[in-house]
Each structure stands twice: as structure tokens, then as C-alpha cells.
Design a protein around this nucleic acid. Structure first.
Lengths: 207, 207
DNA sequence: GTCTATATCATGATAGAC
DNA sequence: GTCTATCATGATATAGAC
């Protein structure tokens, strides 16, 4: 991480808030300058273009998030603990960065290339490989400790169930009145529900 | 549905393509006019504003999709069949309208209000109520035909697992090389996997 | 490094002839 | 109903003084 002047930091803070709130297109350079207490010209002096500024902000936020998700996995956990960890870490970390979901969606819409790069890089920094997880699942199957399932599908299902409430929050809450899918209470229950659904769903059927 | 002139239809077709491809902000009125073989002024003559045109296109597409999802549910299915139906109808219909996922994401980002209205209206037209599903799940629990689970969480999980591959496609396919989450082969398997995971996950545990 | 003022550009919308 | 030409706006980006 390079040294950053005081002004640079002010700009990044202001830009982070506004990009998270309104997205790249929605946020205006004028607004960012105002909130940072400087003028538009300085934004370009420091970051050359809006796109460049957006990239810096975006990449910072995502790295923090994914490091939070990946940094806490333990080696040699038993598989049941592993499943529970995935669910808890994902949901806890996304709760800490609520606006990040929209950020991620915006990136996906633009093709997801930058996002993928950051994820892959973060995985590398944490000595994490997607194959490693798939192999772990495959091992459990071979040892008959879980049912014969498709490993990639399990991964997609797990992460999908964790993230979906945050993605679809505005819809879900209008379709099922009275629910708040990001409340501590709902999320606490959700973690339990996902874990039990998955664990019961994959454990070997008694003969 | 009102009568539409030939020109109006050409506009709607062109606009649908471009909005699906580039979103409301990405699509340009000039492009739409060009593709429809007319000029910009006519767009405003027929639809007054870009926002209005977008609403018309958007609402048409979504109604078609959700009618496809909801229109095929049967009354009085047993619960196992019901779960299977939800999974199959969701995935089959979203496969038929692949670009619609982005469309939905764009709407969610804008607050999801329009989208919710359309969903609720379509549910009404198909005599469908979200409570009805929640009650159905609750009944199964009371009759001890499934485990004691949280009904809203089950709904969110089911739909989340179906939609997530389409939402996160660009990311998943870069993280797990060699996979194609919208290929017929993967989706066929996915339907099976989701159903079995959920059914095993909720069926009563043998004493 | 920081500012004011301005260039430049893209786009949605409209006026008015036919 | 359809077109050409033009306006109005809002944004990024830059020039140049201090």
C-alpha cells in the first residue's frame, strides 16, 4: 500500500461513501469534491479520472471484505465445522459491510472481471484455492462421510444461500411483509437454518 | 393490452433488446432509434421520455417471466412434488430469459419498488399469495411430514439457490474454471442437486 | 498543491417544417 | 406521423493563475 497524503485520504473516504451509496454512475465528482472539502480539479490531479478513482476505492473495499471472509478459515477442521464456518463467516462479514452487496452487483453487471481478479488475488494471499475446497468435499464423499453430491453445486448453493437475502432484500421484504432479512435476529436464525438444511441434506442416509 | 401501431412495436422490440443488453442508463435513445429504423424524435412522440419507454419494456418482460413461473403450479400437489416444481419452474423459466437476470438486478439497485409491484400483481393474477406458501410449509411441519424449520428461510433458500448461478455466473465461472453454470448440462444437474439437498434437508429425521 | 474558470462532450428532449 | 435541426443540461476533464 503506497503512502497517501492527507488530501488523498479525504478524497478516498468521501469517494468510498458516495460510491457505496450511489454507484459509479450515480456519484458525481462534484459531490465527492464537496464532501472531501476540496474542488473537482483536485480529484483529477490526484486520480486522473473518475474511473481510476472508482477502481482504487472499489478494490480497497473488496479486499477488506474478502480477507475477512477467507482469513479466518482453519486448516484441518472436520467437515461439519467447515460448513458451519463458511456460513457464519460469509454472513457475518457481509453484515459488517452492508452496502458492499450493491457494489458487488454493479461489478457483476459490468462483466465481473475486476471483481474476479480481486477475489482470486485475495484467495492467493490467503493460500486458498477453489480446487482445495472441491477436493475436500470429494474426500468426504469418498470416505462416505457425506452423500454422493456434486461438489461445485454444493459450493454454489452454500454461498448462494448466504448472499441471496442481501441481494434480494428489497424484494423479499415486500413479498413477505413484516420480515427484515438483515436484522440480527433473522440472520442469527438464518445461519442456523442454512447449516442444518445443508448438513441434513448431505449427511449419509442411514441404511 | 392496448393496440400498438407497427412503429410502436418496432420501437419496443429495439428498446427491449438494448435495455436487456445495456440497461436503462447504458442504452442510448439514438441507438434505439437506429435499431428501430426511425429517428429520436419519434421515440419521444410515442413514449414521451426514456423513463416511460423503459417502464413499458421492463414491465412487459417481467410479466411474461413471472407468469411463466407462477402459471404452472398445481393445486393440491403433495409437498415433495411442490418443492420439485418450484425448483424446476424457476430454473427453466430463468433459462428461457437469460438476460432478464441483469434486468432484475438493475431494478433491485434502484430500490426494487417497481419490481415488487409487478411481482405482487402477477401473483394476484395467478391467485397466488406468499402466505399461502408459508402456510403450506407450516402445515407440513405440524403434520410432522417435514422437520421443524423456519418457513420464510426455506423459501428464501430455495429461490436463492435457483437464481444465484444466474446472478453470479461471471464470478463463479472464473473462480471454478471449466464450469458453465447456464449450460443445459449443469442446470439439469443443478435441479436434481437442489431438490435432493432440500428434500433430505427437511424430511423428518428417522427416530 | 490548490484554486477558479472554462473547454469539451454526450445525451435527453423539443420546435417546427412537411 | 415522420423528419431535420437545435436546445438545454449536466458531467468529465483541463488550462492556467496563485
Amino acid at each position: 500500500m503506497e503512502e497517501r497524503s492527507k488530501t488523498e485520504k479525504k478524497i478516498i473516504n468521501a469517494a468510498t461513501e458516495l460510491f457505496l451509496e450511489k454507484g459509479k454512475d450515480g456519484a458525481r465528482m462534484q459531490e465527492i469534491a464537496d464532501r472531501a472539502g476540496i474542488n473537482k480539479a483536485l480529484l483529477h490531479y490526484y486520480f486522473r479520472s473518475k474511473t481510476k478513482l472508482h477502481e482504487v476505492v472499489f478494490s480497497n473495499e473488496l479486499k477488506t471484505f474478502f480477507n475477512g471472509v477467507l482469513g479466518t478459515f482453519k486448516e484441518n477442521e472436520d467437515f461439519q465445522t467447515f460448513v458451519k464456518s463458511v456460513v457464519h463467516h460469509y454472513i457475518d462479514n457481509i453484515s459488517k459491510h452492508p452496502k458492499l452487496t450493491q457494489f458487488i452487483l454493479w461489478e457483476i453487471e459490468k462483466g465481473g472481471e475486476n471483481l474476479s481478479k480481486i477475489i482470486l488475488q485475495t484467495m492467493k494471499e490467503n493460500n486458498f484455492q477453489s480446487n482445495q475446497i472441491l477436493d475436500k468435499i470429494q474426500n468426504e464423499i469418498s470416505a462416505h462421510r457425506i452423500r454422493k453430491i456434486d461438489p461445485p453445486n454444493l459450493m454454489v448453493s452454500l454461498i448462494g444461500m448466504c448472499l441471496f437475502p442481501f441481494i434480494a432484500k428489497p424484494i423479499i421484504e415486500r413479498i413477505i411483509p413484516g420480515i427484515n432479512v438483515t436484522s440480527a435476529k433473522f440472520l442469527h436464525r438464518r445461519k442456523e437454518e442454512i447449516f442444518h438444511l445443508v448438513w441434513n441434506g448431505i449427511k449419509p442416509t442411514p441404511e
